[in-house]
């Protein structure tokens, strides 16, 4: 079912990762992405893999959930792997077939790229999605970007839009499922026919969905005004973000990881 999609869903919890300041988490996630691409040697990869496993373990999110979240990546992975295997110009040829040649370098590039993508996805989703409520994430973004508001960037509006989008994704999916079922009950056929037929078959789903979203937008706007919403000016927040000791330790841990990777890159030969 559509609503079972776990991508972009928050798992409430009380782990260290849950408690970190969202601003710190955002900054650390960015650092982490950079780190993943800094790793060159095999031990460096091993270290960052270990660290990622550690992050998942600390978060309290089950490994099964993390693995399932990688499912949508499957085709991306296959695609990049194929490209790297067949279209990289390496010198050590392992196997040839017609114009295709598999080289050692190509193979290594394919494997390391796949590892990077998996690590990237797993770490960012655990840090930013599963252990950070979307609202504190947008909150974090809003506050990190707040200096930009001074030069006229509508940071609050942007953050509010993000929050709303996140709030209504599950509702929207549920509604889509309902409309699909209702049209199926009227004999709508979404599976047979050519591409044009299939595109046409979507009309009975998209139109009701669009209309209900417009109605929702209107009702929501009224409801927000009734709760005295008048934009970002003069607003306070219930949760005040303050960096705690744990945030500095988290930063320290990532700094240590950076040092580790640089050292391992220096002492061990690069894979490529």
């Amino acid at each position: 079912m559509l609503k079972d999609i776990t991508l972009g869903q928050y798992f409430p919890g009380n782990s260290l990762l849950h408690k970190l300041d969202p601003r710190m988490k955002l900054l650390l996630a960015i650092c982490y992405i950079v780190l993943i691409f800094l790793a060159k040697s095999a031990p460096a990869y091993a270290l960052i893999l270990l660290f990622t496993v550690l992050i998942v373990a600390v978060s309290g999110v089950s490994f099964g959930v993390v693995l399932r979240s990688l499912k949508p990546l499957f085709f991306v992975l296959i695609f990049t792997t194929l490209i790297n295997v067949f279209w990289s110009n390496g010198t050590t040829v392992l196997w040839t077939w017609g114009p295709f040649a598999i080289t050692r370098e190509g193979l290594i590039r394919a494997v390391t790229m796949a590892i990077r993508i998996v690590l990237l996805m797993a770490s960012t989703s655990v840090i930013l999605m599963y252990t950070t409520s979307p609202i504190s994430l947008t909150d974090g973004i809003e506050r990190l970007l707040s200096p930009l508001a001074k030069i006229g960037v509508p940071v609050h509006t942007f953050a509010m839009m993000m929050t709303m989008a996140l709030r209504f994704i599950p509702t929207l999916l549920e509604e889509t499922q309902k409309i699909i079922n209702a049209q199926k009950a009227r004999g709508a056929d979404f599976d047979s026919g050519n591409l044009i037929d299939k595109a046409k078959a979507l009309i009975p789903i998209l139109i009701p969905l669009l209309i209900s979203q417009f109605r929702r937008a209107e009702e929501l706007a009224t409801a927000m005004e009734c709760r005295c919403y008048r934009g970002g000016g003069g607003r306070t927040r219930m949760t005040v973000l303050r960096f705690a000791l744990r945030d500095f330790f988290a930063a320290l841990a990532v700094a240590a990881l950076l040092a580790g990777i640089i050292l391992l890159n220096l002492y061990f030969p690069a894979l490529l």
Binding site: K178, I179, N181, A182, Q183, A185, R186, I203, P204, I207, P208, S212
Partner: peptide, 10 residues
């Protein structure tokens, strides 16, 4: 006929 079937009109 589903609940609130008017939402399926298109």
């Amino acid at each position: 006929v589903f609940q609130y079937p008017e939402y399926q009109l298109f």
